[in-house]
Simulated scan of single mutants.
Amino acid sequence: MHNRTVAAGLLSVLLLTGCTTNSGDTADKPGPSASGVRLSAGWGPKLITLTDTKRALCNQAGDHGCADHVAAIAIEANALQDVIEKTGGSYPRTKIKIMEIVNGATSYTVHECGGDTNASIAGSPCPDDVFQVRGGAETLPFTLEADEAGR
């Protein structure tokens, strides 16, 4: 229970502060540029890599690796939201998708899924929470492109 409490607290702090994983080093993150820059060019491949390379991590929703993966996706979604806000771009569908991801990660935390050996049993909300986060992250690159095409 202590590990779940620590993980839940950490995820909550990260989500509330919009903390990113790069500790201030923006060299590897697509950032605000001159107007007309397509965020999907930098963020699309990054998000695809984040979800494709970790596909089996959440076979068991309560595994610590899955909890870390859910947190990593939420952190990147928050970082993308920050970039959108800083660039002043109009990404209405992307913002909705990011909110869905953050809501799924918040539910995962509230349901204390990380480290719970029963998180994947029938009736547990944890697999749905994971699906909301991962499914949102897997479609986010396409949502970015759709918003950019609609400008």
Results as ranks from 00 to 15, higher is better:
residue 15 L to T: 02
residue 10 L to F: 04
residue 46 K to H: 14
residue 42 G to F: 12
residue 40 S to A: 15
residue 21 T to I: 01
residue 33 S to P: 01
residue 12 S to F: 02
residue 21 T to G: 03
residue 23 S to W: 06
residue 22 N to A: 06
residue 2 H to A: 10
residue 49 T to F: 14
residue 14 L to C: 08
residue 35 S to H: 09
residue 36 G to I: 11
residue 9 G to K: 06
residue 23 S to C: 07
residue 51 T to C: 04
residue 13 V to M: 05
residue 4 R to L: 02
residue 24 G to F: 04
residue 39 L to F: 11
residue 11 L to F: 02
residue 20 T to Y: 00
residue 24 G to Q: 02
residue 12 S to H: 06
residue 17 T to G: 03
residue 27 A to S: 15
residue 18 G to R: 02
residue 17 T to K: 01
residue 32 P to D: 06
residue 42 G to Y: 09
residue 49 T to S: 15
residue 24 G to E: 04
residue 30 P to I: 00
residue 32 P to N: 04
residue 38 R to A: 14
residue 32 P to S: 12
residue 14 L to M: 14
residue 5 T to S: 07
residue 43 W to R: 11
residue 7 A to S: 12
residue 51 T to M: 05
residue 7 A to Y: 03
residue 44 G to P: 13
residue 22 N to R: 04
residue 27 A to M: 01
residue 14 L to W: 03
residue 40 S to G: 12
residue 30 P to N: 01
residue 28 D to E: 06
residue 28 D to A: 09
residue 15 L to F: 00
residue 35 S to R: 09
residue 43 W to Q: 13
residue 12 S to L: 05
residue 11 L to H: 05
residue 22 N to G: 02
residue 1 M to S: 09
residue 20 T to P: 00
residue 22 N to D: 15
residue 21 T to C: 02
residue 50 L to Q: 15
residue 41 A to E: 15
residue 48 I to P: 03
residue 42 G to E: 11
residue 33 S to T: 11
residue 35 S to I: 05
residue 34 A to V: 12
